[in-house]
């Protein structure tokens, strides 16, 4: 699989790069927990193990690298389950000059090539469309009453107590349990047009400000990757960092250092580009019909 991925990108003149796993800063997303370690030299410094190589790769893009890809380890704390291991392998790539559509096309081509027939005829649907299909709710407009009614009908009334009036949390919950399991029955399914409150590092759509230029890839209800039309506005990026750092504080989560290097790289100019990260262990699970992520790892965290 790794060899074929490398051939795929070599044919398209995308450069393979390597970026640090240990860094002074880290992603600020409240949902991602990180590992830290201490660098002992003249003074002790706290370093972060990267939850994704995104920031470093964007710095390369800003420095004029052109299209790049990387296959590397990423680390996310507190994540263990059938589809999760705290240390996992990621394929991340950025295409300069691509928009979201171009990237979706390339993702489909890569998956069809890798899967030898398993991923033929990929589907493409908008978030709003699938959300309405399985819940009858409007994903872009939050109505506490309508969302709560639906949860009660589904015998999921506990959602009301912990989602409260948090629209993004409701979307996470309903999408995870009522929508996602139905996506990509024996084929690849790309979901695009995420609500703006779930924009992460994507741009807001130029025509519809309620929607973010972001897509995800699913197969049989399993999430395989997340693609963005990359945000390049350093001030907007800074605002999102600050907002997330603030959320982390109010939720009493571990403190994080925002990546000033990324901000200055964005300031100097990130070319228009689209990028995506794919969980390779999960892809391998699907290609080999494995039931648990531990089946495709040499040693999972319990035995590492």
């Amino acid at each position: 699989m790794l060899q074929r991925i490398r051939v795929f990108f070599a044919q398209r003149n995308v450069l393979e790069v390597e970026t640090p796993l240990l860094s002074h800063a880290c992603g600020t997303e409240p949902q991602l927990a990180f590992f830290t370690t201490t660098f002992e030299f003249s003074t002790s410094e706290k370093l972060f193990l990267q939850t994704s190589p995104e920031f470093a790769m964007k710095r390369l893009l800003a420095a004029g690298s052109g299209s790049i890809y990387q296959i590397c380890k990423a680390f996310r704390n507190s994540e263990v389950g059938r589809f999760h291991n705290p240390e996992f392998t990621m394929l991340e790539w950025y295409r300069v000059g691509f928009d979201l559509n171009d990237l979706m096309n390339e993702v489909e081509t890569l998956f069809v090539e890798l899967s030898e027939g398993k991923f033929n005829a990929p589907q493409r649907k908008s978030y709003v469309q699938v959300f309405a299909q399985y819940t009858d709710l409007n994903a872009l407009e939050f109505s506490f009453d309508a969302y709560s009614d639906f949860a009660i009908k589904q015998e999921m009334s506990e959602a009301i107590t912990f989602c409260e009036h948090n629209h993004a949390l409701w979307l996470d919950y309903l999408f995870s349990f009522c929508v996602q399991p139905n996506l990509g029955k024996n084929t690849l399914c790309l979901i695009y047009g995420y609500p703006a409150c779930q924009s992460a590092l994507a741009r807001i759509n130029a025509e519809n400000s309620l929607v973010a230029d972001r897509f995800e890839v699913f197969f049989n209800g399993v999430e395989l990757g997340n693609g963005f039309y990359e945000l390049k506005d350093s001030e907007e990026q800074n605002r999102r960092f600050e907002a997330e750092i603030h959320t982390r504080k109010t939720q009493h989560l571990a403190n994080v250092v925002k990546d000033e290097h990324l901000l200055s790289a964005l300031k100097s100019g990130l070319p228009d580009c689209a990028g995506i990260a794919i969980g390779l262990d999960r892809l391998l699970m699907i290609l080999t019909n494995a039931d648990r992520i531990s089946d495709v790892l040499s040693f999972d965290i319990e035995r590492a």
Partner: peptide
């Protein structure tokens, strides 16, 4: 106990 987590969202346990 199944761990469920959207890549960019809140983690749940079903």
């Amino acid at each position: 106990n199944e761990f469920v987590k959207p890549g960019k969202g809140q983690a749940f346990n079903r």
